[in-house]
């Protein structure tokens, strides 16, 4: 049953059924809790009725074919979509119990707490040091020069970049390799001490070795942070994540422990996707 028509029927069945597969049967604390989230760009509906509980200190991967809404959903978690005109959100996203779309929420403070790394590395055209220091400066997080330097070093160490760049902190970030630039963007996000890190296909433009370094980094970082990673690469999802959510046509089809998602998914569509039959 891998032809699109049958899959659509399956989706219809999914939508009408209770969301029994949308929450893995685990008793864990919840960091991010989305409730019946709908999202549209103008008149185009991109996400329909997404409900998910994401747990702290684990890596959660969002997988699904292009255009399935996984990146859009990721960007609702730090309200990055707000800067695109004409977007609309319905429903709730609770982070530590607070609705980030509720009244009185300061988007600036939210984004400080929920860091983001983009698909294409986007270092500022400044020195390596200033790239990291920027977030600290704008958030007023470093009082003295030495404090600032300390935090910059700490962030670069966390992103496993310190040894490579410690002798050229004042050189332009644009002179670094692609993989280094992406780790710089991770260090930059970590510098402002978020507790959630959103990664939107962070390794899709990198070579295998650079990709491996990012994956090792993600593995280390989950001790301290809640990590949500969007990926096109099924092997990557299987390697780095503890939980996996499969998105399809703007809906969350299935969400479970990664090992279960890849070995015994409950839904036929999920199985078709993870075994490479479409996507």
């Amino acid at each position: 049953m891998s032809d699109p028509a049958t899959r659509l029927t399956a989706l219809g069945a999914l939508a009408s059924r209770s969301s029994q597969h949308q929450h893995p049967p685990v008793d864990r604390p919840v960091k991010i809790h989305a409730e019946s989230l709908n999202f549209s760009y103008g008149s185009t509906r991109a996400l329909t009725d997404i409900s998910i509980r994401i747990h702290p200190n684990v890596v959660t991967a969002f997988i699904g074919p292009s255009g399935c809404g996984k990146s859009t959903f990721l960007r609702t978690l730090n309200r990055m979509n707000d800067i695109i005109p004409g977007t609309r959100v319905e429903g709730k996203v609770l982070i530590d119990g607070t609705d980030i779309y509720g009244p009185g929420i300061d988007v600036v403070a939210l984004r400080r707490r929920v860091g983001m790394v983009f698909q294409k590395s986007n270092p500022f055209p400044k020195s390596i040091f200033d790239n990291i220091a920027y977030g600290l400066r704008i958030n007023g997080m470093a009082g003295t020069r030495s404090e600032l330097a300390e935090r910059v070093e700490e962030s670069l160490r966390q992103a496993a970049l310190w040894d490579e760049v410690k002798d050229r902190l004042q050189t332009s970030a644009l002179a670094m390799s692609g993989g280094q630039q992406q780790r710089l963007c991770i260090a930059r996000a970590l510098a402002v001490r978020p507790d959630i890190l959103l990664m939107d296909e962070p390794a899709s433009a990198l070579d295998p070795i650079a990709t491996q370094r990012i994956e090792e980094l993600v593995y280390d970082l989950k001790k301290t942070y809640t990590i949500v990673i969007v990926t096109h690469n099924m092997q990557q999802a299987a390697r780095v994540s503890d939980f996996t959510a499969f998105f399809w046509l703007g809906r969350l089809v299935e969400y479970d422990r990664t090992d279960k998602m890849f070995t015994a998914p409950a839904e036929k569509v999920t199985e078709d996707y993870v075994t490479g039959r479409f996507g």
Binding site: N78, M80, I83, V108, A109, L110, R111, R112, R113, G115, M116, F118, K120, N122, P123, F124, P125, Y134, G135, I138, N139, C185, R188, A189, V192
Partner: peptide, 22 residues
């Protein structure tokens, strides 16, 4: 590039900080 603005906003920069510094 819009990616520069996004990078700045994602760190918790205000609009003015993004415009002025980046």
């Amino acid at each position: 590039p819009p990616s520069i603005r996004e990078g700045s906003y994602a760190l918790g920069a205000t609009k003015w900080q993004t415009v002025w510094y980046q």
